[in-house]
Design a protein around this nucleic acid. Structure first.
Lengths: 343, 343
DNA sequence: GCTGTATGGGAGAGCGCTCTCCCATGAACT
DNA sequence: AGTTCATGGGAGAGCGCTCTCCCATACAGC
């Protein structure tokens, strides 16, 4: 039933009665071949069950036709946290988008976790060995070494989110500032006047901009100062931050959390303090992840079009693999307000 | 700074003043080489920044030193569901475990989604091309084609969970029946007497066994009949099933849900009907996923040691890649009861 | 009828490795 | 001293492709 040694180009050529070169040309559509001969070759491929050997092809083309997805972050070191992050709906949506965009090209991405410098080295070596032609970088925290290291070994990369410092990397990002503005505008429109914020880690550009947009939005609505506490995007940090804010601003009536997970934590903390959501306090999250949909009350949130962003990352990367000469570029997407019960 | 064309074995050999073969022997530790010469070669590798070309190596060894992780399920077809599944903490923990176990071997797994027959074909072709030496299969639903197709092209596979029908595949699984028993025993031990169950999809062996164990456990505690409703492991299905059970068994005081997500849905449904958890109704989930930890009340659950199971999958697969001759084998792990507030 | 020019096919080198031979050396026996 | 044998190094084939040449043929233009 199964061919013992896989058939090679040579075998197909013999069956078709042509040369190896001709078969190769038909398969790769690399030069004109007479239609009759194409037909004969196709039939021979069918008959032999031929599938090109990727290693042999890669050896001469110097392309692997593979890409890597690198998940970087400072806090993946224990498996629980890493599980947490891979588990983050944010990541799931992004990954699904990437896989979907790659599928038509017959590419399945290799997944790597970069937790420390040793990993960066191992990953760079992996790329240098020719295992993959380029990288899609997803980090929770600004990690600047990898793009440079990969560029060094001639591998382009595309990052999700703008890097904190300039780096040889294209990126896809959201108009975070606009997202923050939308949150403020919505909260103001439902009559709130005592806003607070739970920000993301402020070393992350996205967190800075969400917050800046939020403050800007409130400034426009006549509220020049917004008390805020920094969180870490996680459930626990949201809960803790909310408690602190309730201490500092007992009469608050609106919360913007820079992630849905933090919003969920905040809502639970509010419940513990006897505040009803949204009657007493309105809460807006960020991301539109599963917790936003599933928890009670459903969380009103700012949605990132992650699937489309993932597709853009793939497009950008494949372009740069095809032609490495142009400088890195970027694409910015618009956020969308999703209304649920919490605000 | 960067070597224009990557240095080859030949280059290293020249620098070291030995033959290509000797350098290869040192790098692969494949035969005795005099210590002094080893040293010289190592220095030359260092000096040239040599990294072996994987394609060239694969071409002759017929090994890619890569493995694929195939995520299969019937309901991944729309990106939302796929995102949902990748997003499932269950999957995140498993994937993290796999990546961790593979890392010491310098292997980064290729991720593939199998949603339909075309995908199965594409995936099989991918393996046949020599892109990966073996597959780790994770399916939510029993999918039997892939192991056979992969075996056909000479690629071993290891499955998470026992296949519904016999297949040429090793597997790693949990003692689900024992898990069900533990749930019943715990609920009985906290004084409950009117148990119900929300099962997983009954075509899945794991769902059958959890339920069988649960019923067996209650039978031992003098409760021969346990009303149950079938769910689909999801939040919504848990919510729906709970409503139905409340209709049918208004005086129920214990619920075993075959997944944490369903348990969460059930708890919300109970809340909607004015039942307090755990005062009025005790709820036990399954998996110990993030929702079990994060939701209020925290869900008492049966934990699967997914990280260790993932490591076992990797071990089994690498063994079978090394030596394909032995028949597929399996490893079964024990569940652990994790106490939280819900029961 | 001769040259110029597309057009399409074949020959063969070579990508960077591994691995099987084969050979040189020296130690350990008879 | 001669033979055997273990040890370690080199030569070179060949893995399955792609791609550059080169050549055969056909056809147009003068």
């Amino acid at each position: 039933m199964s061919a013992d040694p896989s058939p090679t180009l040579e075998d197909v050529a013999r069956v078709a009665g042509v040369s190896r070169a001709t078969v190769s040309r038909v398969i790769n559509e690399t030069r004109n071949v007479a239609p009759e001969i194409q037909e004969v070759v196709r039939r021979a491929v069918e008959a032999t069950g031929y599938v090109p050997n990727r290693a042999a092809r890669s050896l001469v083309t110097r392309r692997s036709e593979a890409v890597g997805v690198v998940v970087a972050g400072t806090d993946l070191s224990d498996s629980l946290n890493a599980g947490q992050f891979l588990t983050d709906p944010f990541f799931g949506r992004l990954l699904t988008g990437i896989i979907g965009a790659l599928k038509p090209r017959g590419i399945f991405p290799a997944l790597m976790l970069a937790e420390n410098e040793a990993d960066d080295l191992a990953i760079t070596a992996y790329f240098k060995q020719g295992n993959a032609d380029g990288a899609l970088l997803i980090s929770t925290y600004p990690d600047e070494r990898l793009p440079g290291m990969l560029a060094e070994v001639g591998r382009p990369s595309v990052r999700f989110a703008r890097p904190a410092r300039p780096a040889p990397v294209s990126y896809v990002d959201l108009a975070h500032r606009e997202g923050g503005r939308m949150a403020a505008a919505h909260l103001a429109s439902v009559g709130r006047r005592r806003p607070v914020a739970i920000t993301g880690p402020m070393e992350i550009p996205a967190a800075q901009e969400r917050q800046a947009g939020y403050e800007e939005g409130w400034a426009r609505h006549g509220c020049p100062f917004v008390p805020s506490v920094e969180g870490g995007f996680t459930y626990d940090s949201g809960e803790r931050a909310m408690k602190e804010l309730l201490d500092r601003v007992p009469d608050l009536d609106a919360v913007f959390a820079a992630s849905d997970l933090m919003a969920q934590g905040a809502i639970h903390a509010l419940g513990d303090h006897g505040r009803r959501v949204p009657e007493d306090v309105a809460v807006v999250g960020f991301d539109d992840s599963a917790p936003a949909r599933l928890s009670r009350p459903g969380i009103t949130t700012i949605r990132q079009p992650l699937e489309e962003m993932a597709a853009a990352m793939v497009r950008l990367l494949l372009q740069r693999i095809e032609d490495p000469s142009p400088d890195p570029t970027s694409v910015i997407f618009d956020p969308v307000l999703v209304l649920r019960e919490s605000a």
